[in-house]
Amino acid sequence: MSAAGSAPRLYWPAQRQRNRGVKGLLTVVAAFLALYAYLFPGLISVSGVAKFSQSWLPLVLVSMAQAILMLAGGVSLAIGAMVSLGAVIAATTMAGPLGVAGGAALVMVAGLVTGAACGIVVVRLGLPAIVVTLAASFIVGGAALLILPRPGGAIPAWLSDSLAGETPVAALLVILAVVLWKLYLATPLGLSLYAAGENSVAAYRAGVPVDSARIAAYAVSGLLSTCAGLFVAAQTGSGDPVIGEAFTLNSIAAAVLGGVGFLGGRGAMRGAVAGSLLLSVMINVMYFLGFPPVAHYIAQGLIIVGAVALPEFTARRSSP
C-alpha cells in the first residue's frame, strides 16, 4: 500500500477526462455568469455571492437528486413531493423539543428511507420507475399535507439567518454537496452506478452489485431532496406542504441541460450541477434585464428542446 507513491496517477486524470463532455456547457455558464456580474456588479461581494448561492442551492440539490437516478437508468417524478416533505418536517420539529439537530436528522432519515423504499419497489419488483415515482409523489405529498395541512410551522430564526442570511453559507453547502458526491463516487457502490445504468446485464455478469447500486441511488436521491426542502424552509422561515412542486420539472430540466441522458449511463453529475447553475443564472439575468418573471419559462422550454435536439442533429450530420 505504501509503495503507492510510485504508482501511476489515476484519480485526478480520470476526473479531468470526465470534464470534456461538459466543456461547452461550462463555457456557456461562464458567459452567463460574466454577463450577470457585468449587469449586477454587486454579485462579486460577500453578500452578492450569498444571495445568489441561496437561490441556487435548492435547485442544485434537486438536480443532483434527479441526475443520480438518471445515471442509474431511472427517473423520479417525486422529487418535488420529497422537497415538500423535508420542508414540513423541518418546520414542525426544529422549533420543538427535538431541536435543530434532531429535526435535521429526522429530515435526512425521512429522505433516505422514502427514497430507498421507492428504489426497492422499482428495482426488486421490476416496476416502471415513472409510474412508481408518480404514485410516490401522491403518497409523499399526502404525508407532507398530513404533517402540516397549511403553511405554517417555524424554523428557529438563528438557523434561517445563518443559512439564508448575509453570509455565504449556502455557497459552502454547495461545495460540501459536491465534495460528498465525489466521496460517494469513490466508493465501489457509487462507481457501480455508471455500470448499472449503461449495461446492467454485462455489469451483473462482471460481479457488479447492480441492484444495491440502484437502490442506494434512490436513497441518496431522497436524502438530497429532503435536504433541499430543509433549506427552502429555512429560507422562508416556515413550512409549506406544496412548496416543492415546481422542483420536479426543474430538476429534470437541469439534468437534461447538463447532458444527462434518460437511458442511463450517459452524462455526468458535473453536467447536472452546471445545468442547474445555468438555469439559476438565466433566471437571475432575465429578471435583471426586466423581462417579466414568466419569460424564463419560455426560455427554459426552448433551451431544453434545443439541448435535446442539438446532439441529434450533429449525430445525423456526422453519420452518412
Partner: peptide
C-alpha cells in the same frame, strides 16, 4: 463487450473486484 464507456480504462478493469 460489456464495458462502461463513461468510465476510465482502469475503472472498467477493476469494476466488480475493486
Amino acid at each position: 463487450l460489456g464495458l462502461t464507456s463513461q468510465l476510465s480504462i482502469a475503472e472498467n478493469i477493476g469494476l466488480g473486484a475493486l
